[in-house]
Design a protein around this nucleic acid. Structure first.
Length: 665
RNA sequence: GCCGAUGUAGCUCAGUGGUAGAGCAUUCGAUUCGUAAUCGAACGGUCGUGAGUUCAACUCUCAUCAUCGGCUCCA
């Protein structure tokens, strides 16, 4: 994980103001170091990178299934593939497996492996396969067989156990190293991933070529758990959950709020530059609004129940609802007056907090919550403006990621699933919208993949997918093309020829949501925020009580320049104060004793570079804010703060000290 | 929502069928201290919540809430 210390890996380049720069193209990059071969580290290939590991893992899953069926004769087998870091097998068993069973199963697996059973492939006809499966009474396998094309293959482990399987496998269980295999966890899973079908029991395991690889894999997993945003968020006191408030409803502490609002301010500034117009809308509305948008029909399950004044109103569905999305509100602002083509594109932007009734089992930390703030904007554009506007939105999104030093993401074209009925609108409008997205992405030359069935119910999306510390994928930024809501709300503008025309809408949110973004950022930085995002940027540490007044005065000066400074007035010894500041991951510590007070200096220690020695108070402040282009900043990750604090600092100082530098950032 | 696990002071954790302990944090006192932990004392928990079994439950049973790992779903 050390390789992810940001200074070393992030290639710094000027933020683009024009789109199309090749280097902003996202690439598929695994989140962990696992895929980065490094001389001093054990290389841990993913299954997709190693045919050998694929075979080992797939065979291990068969060995596990054989072991399970020996120990639990009533367990029926279903599927058991290799996955990126291991394997799993799903069973339908009347008795639930427990953690303790894993140990027993592992023991049984060792026995099987030590018998050095040959793994033999056999090709059979469909009828023969059916006959054999019926003989061993495995209904799930029979169902799998129905979907298979010939040739149909069976794999035998010795002469006592076989499985319907496409392979490939290693040639003998002797090729598996019991010390490089671990059974990791139990989980529930639905047959065929369908929640209306049977609930199966899944056992996850991992398998490697050598025990060293397994140990390294487990070490990295533990390392990853240490950067879990829930853990770090608690340690750093950024947010809390309270039982009386409810699940999935985070409370933001002062420190977390500083982080959040700094991100908000940053994006607001970018949006001002790009002609966005701020709006504010309420958290609730008549349900009628969401009936017209189609949410009530297609999205009701995800909404908090309607608040009705009385039973009659409830029966007529005439109450109020918490908003699950902001778009209908922005649409009402657009609709409030007759719009001219001269006003378009109209970009209405709001940090709008929405409420969605997520299923209880989905909630977790900040990445999945029930109330969250979307950095939402709805752009009303003419059909002619659509392509350019789409690309400029993508450019803004990539600029944002770049400023946040986020580069491990993938771009997904989220299109509709033609087989599903969860969408509104006609096929024609969908094709048009999907075409627009595809066109823009191709024009940008961006790497991407398609996600069929990932669209919103009202339109296709271009989504930016990130991974958390545990390699789970989360959507952050999103750009959506929508011909349908303008239709449903009968939106119009007066064109240059005097006719009424229908605008196209773009929905977009570069952050996606503040909550999820903060969660991902915490894990990305492991809590070590760049200076501009740090809730506390500098802590002043008085060595003795005599210097406390001086230190307090310096802190006040710093705060007047919007440097987030605080004084450690605990009266503890220096070593303890430093320890505390380090644990709180405060980027800059300023030690002040009699010498420093005398000389009006601060003895600076940074988290990134250690002791820097005594520096004049004025210079420290210049270097903190990046005001002086000739002075290096304390932390290479400070870059962004320059343009942010600078605008304020310049305003306060009435000078243009920062402008030269802000252009660099 | 479903499957499984977990729930002891603010935090991290130990513990037992006979009504609970440590470290850190907090408060107070002493120490006035120079780059990752000064010393001492005090405070702090109806052991998630509610029922049940029992002479007796934090410990066993059931329900419920929350959290965690998955599944399904999503910003």
């Amino acid at each position: 994980m050390a390789g992810r210390s940001l200074g070393s890996t992030f290639k710094r380049s000027p933020l683009s103001s024009n789109f199309l720069p090749i280097d902003v193209s996202p690439r598929l990059m695994p989140n962990s170091d696992a895929a980065l071969p490094q001389a001093d580290k054990i290389y841990l290939p993913k299954s997709s990178e190693s045919k050998t590991l694929q075979k080992i893992r797939h065979t291990a899953s068969h060995v596990m299934a054989m072991a399970v069926q020996k120990l639990f004769p009533k367990a029926q087998v279903t599927i058991g593939p290799s996955i990126e870091n291991g394997f799993y097998y799903d069973f339908d068993s009347p008795e639930p497996f427990t953690e303790k069973d894993l140990k027993v199963i592992k023991k049984e697996m060792i026995k099987i492996i030590n018998r050095k059973l040959p793994v033999v492939r056999e090709e059979v006809t469909r009828e023969e396969a059916k006959r054999r499966i019926e003989a061993i009474q495995e209904p799930y396998k029979l169902e799998i067989l129905e979907g298979l094309e010939e040739p149909i293959t069976l794999y035998h482990l010795g002469d006592q156990w076989w499985d319907l399987c496409a392979g490939p496998h290693v040639e003998s269980t002797a090729e598996l190293n019991p010390e490089a295999i671990a059974l990791e966890s139990l989980a529930g899973a639905y047959w065929r991933g369908d929640e209306t079908k049977a609930q199966l029991q899944r056992i996850y395991g991992t398998a490697w070529e050598t025990p060293e690889q397994l140990v390294e894999y487990q070490r990295r997993k533990e390392e990853a758990m240490r950067r879990d945003h829930r853990k770090i968020g608690k340690e750093l006191g950024l947010f809390v959950f309270a039982d009386p408030v409810g699940p999935g409803l985070p409370l933001w502490t002062p420190k977390g709020t500083v982080l959040r609002s700094t991100l908000e301010d940053f994006l607001k500034q970018e949006q001002v530059k790009r002609g966005y117009l701020p709006v504010v809308t309420p958290h609730i509305s008549r349900v009628e609004l969401f009936k017209q948008s189609g949410h009530w029909q297609k999205y009701k399950e995800d909404m908090f129940p309607m608040m009705a004044e009385n039973d009659e109103a409830r029966a007529l569905e005439q109450g109020f609802v918490m908003k699950p999305m902001n778009c209908p509100f922005h649409i009402q602002i657009y609709k409030s007056t007759l719009r001219s083509y001269r006003e378009l594109p109209m970009r209405l932007a709001e940090f709008g907090t929405v409420y969605r009734y997520e299923q209880s089992g989905e909630l977790g930390g900040l990445t999945r919550v029930r109330g969250f703030t979307v950095d939402d904007s709805h752009l009303f554009v003419t059909p002619e403006q659509l392509d350019d506007e789409f690309m400029s939105v993508v450019d803004l999104t990539l600029t944002v990621f770049k400023s946040l030093q986020l580069k491990n993401f993938r771009a997904r074209l989220s299109f509709r699933d033609p087989a599903s009925d969860k969408y509104i609108g006609t096929d024609e409008t969908w094709d048009k919208a999907e075409g627009a997205i595809r066109r823009a992405v191709e024009k940008l030359g961006m790497d991407h993949f398609e996600g069929i069935g990932e669209a919103a119910f009202y339109g296709p999306k271009l989504d930016f997918i990130f991974q958390d510390a545990l390699d789970r994928e989360w959507q952050l930024g999103t750009v959506q093309v929508d011909y349908i809501l303008p239709e449903r709300f009968d939106l119009e503008y007066v064109a240059d020829d005097g006719t009424r025309k229908r605008p196209v809408m773009l929905h977009r949110a570069p952050f996606g949501s503040l909550e999820r973004l903060v969660g991902i950022l915490i894990e990305e930085y492991a809590g070590d925020f760049p200076l501009w995002l740090s809730p506390v940027q500098v802590r002043l540490l008085p060595v003795t009580e005599e210097v406390l007044p001086f230190v307090t005065e310096v802190a006040a000066q710093m705060r007047s320049l919007h440097i987030r400074a605080e004084v450690d007035a605990s009266g503890e010894r220096l070593g303890k104060m430093i320890r505390n500041a380090e644990k709180e991951k405060i980027p800059v510590m300023a030690v002040v004793g009699a010498k420093e007070m005398e000389a009006r200096t601060l003895n600076i220690r940074t988290r990134a570079s250690g002791e820097l020695g005594a520096i004049a108070v004025a210079e420290v402040m210049e270097r903190m804010t990046g005001r002086s282009p000739s002075l290096p900043v304390f932390n290479p990750l400070v870059e962004r703060v320059c343009s942010i604090t600078l605008d304020r600092t310049a305003a306060i100082l009435g000078g243009d000290a920062g402008r030269a530098r802000s252009q660099r950032g």
